[in-house]
Simulated scan of single mutants.
Amino acid sequence: MRGLLRENAAEAANAYMAWWNLAGVDCAVGEERVDWLRTAQAHARPALPVGGDGPAPARPASFDAFLTWLAEDAAQPERHWPGAAILPEGPTEAPLMVITDMPDPADVSAGALLSDRAGQLFDGMLRAIGLKRADIHLASLFLSRPPGAMVEAADLAAAAARMRTHVMLAAPRRLLLLGDRTIRSLLPAADAGSRIFNHDGGTLPVFATFHPRLLLGQPAAKAECWRMLQGLIEEMSE
């Protein structure tokens, strides 16, 4: 009787584990975060070549070609997310290029980056350093907003590499990064304290601060943001 019970228990356990495996749960703990809201189509897309797996696809050689590539290339991560893409705006060779992580919900509705209250605060930051939106080049790591604002590590790495080409072709004189995700993606831990940004064509001065959306919720952080802006003002006056 005991042997039969043990045998039935083993079969039940095996059936239980097989059911979870079919459901896609094949380990207790994974090393990477999983975006459960990502569509099945996104999981099916082929992986980008990494390292020695093959030559990297050719990037555009001019800024106009780069914009066309952003808007039309089917391999861009945003093609698998809902919503229209918000392309970069502003002149090349601008005195300042500003990079944020992705459009906020208000930006998606407005069809432009840094809209609504966050945009008003951002415009105030620009005025403090003697600039307006028409003077700057404004872009985001991601052109649209993924479900739940969750991004896989591979997409983040691809967007960071794409942005280094973008900076080279836009050719600004200095760079301002907004938000923790943007900073961590474009300034690796080894360069976190650096004032120099390495892009595909060389280097340029870089400054980093909180995203306006965080400043709206945490006014105490505005003092640190103002100290950064003062440093940027000093650099622009040189």
Rank of each mutant, 00 (worst) to 15 (best):
residue 56 A to K: 10
residue 102 M to G: 02
residue 88 P to T: 01
residue 94 A to W: 02
residue 10 A to Y: 05
residue 15 A to I: 10
residue 187 L to Y: 06
residue 173 R to W: 06
residue 200 D to L: 14
residue 22 L to H: 14
residue 166 H to K: 03
residue 238 E to K: 14
residue 17 M to A: 14
residue 146 P to D: 05
residue 108 V to F: 05
residue 91 P to N: 02
residue 202 G to Y: 08
residue 76 Q to Y: 01
residue 163 M to S: 06
residue 152 E to R: 13
residue 238 E to P: 05
residue 221 A to F: 13
residue 179 G to I: 07
residue 111 G to E: 00
residue 54 G to Q: 10
residue 95 P to M: 02
residue 97 M to V: 00
residue 125 M to W: 10
residue 130 G to V: 01
residue 141 L to T: 04
residue 167 V to Y: 05
residue 103 P to L: 06
residue 79 R to C: 08
residue 137 H to Q: 06
residue 213 R to L: 12
residue 122 F to G: 04
residue 84 A to R: 13
residue 23 A to H: 14
residue 223 A to I: 06
residue 196 I to C: 08
residue 24 G to Q: 01
residue 26 D to T: 15
residue 34 V to D: 09
residue 120 Q to P: 10
residue 145 R to D: 02
residue 133 R to I: 04
residue 64 D to H: 12
residue 144 S to Y: 03
residue 91 P to L: 05
residue 159 A to E: 04
residue 140 S to F: 08
residue 5 L to Y: 09
residue 217 G to W: 02
residue 197 F to W: 03
residue 9 A to C: 02
residue 124 G to R: 00
residue 85 A to H: 04
residue 131 L to E: 05
residue 56 A to H: 09
residue 93 E to T: 08
residue 230 Q to N: 14
residue 90 G to V: 02
residue 110 A to R: 12
residue 151 V to W: 07
residue 142 F to C: 06
residue 231 G to V: 07
residue 216 L to I: 12
residue 85 A to S: 13
residue 103 P to Y: 04
residue 196 I to R: 13
residue 93 E to I: 03
residue 141 L to A: 09
residue 201 G to V: 02
residue 112 A to Y: 06
residue 13 A to K: 04
residue 108 V to E: 11
residue 229 L to H: 00
residue 85 A to I: 07
residue 37 L to M: 15
residue 69 W to D: 12
residue 55 P to N: 11
residue 144 S to I: 01
residue 158 A to F: 13
residue 102 M to N: 14
residue 220 A to C: 07
residue 119 G to N: 01
residue 107 D to G: 08
residue 230 Q to S: 11
residue 157 A to P: 05
residue 83 G to F: 04
residue 78 E to F: 09
residue 34 V to H: 15
residue 225 C to M: 15
residue 236 M to D: 13
residue 66 F to R: 04
residue 177 L to W: 14
residue 52 G to P: 04
residue 117 R to G: 02
residue 55 P to G: 10
residue 232 L to H: 06
residue 217 G to V: 05
residue 102 M to I: 00
residue 86 I to A: 00
residue 77 P to H: 04
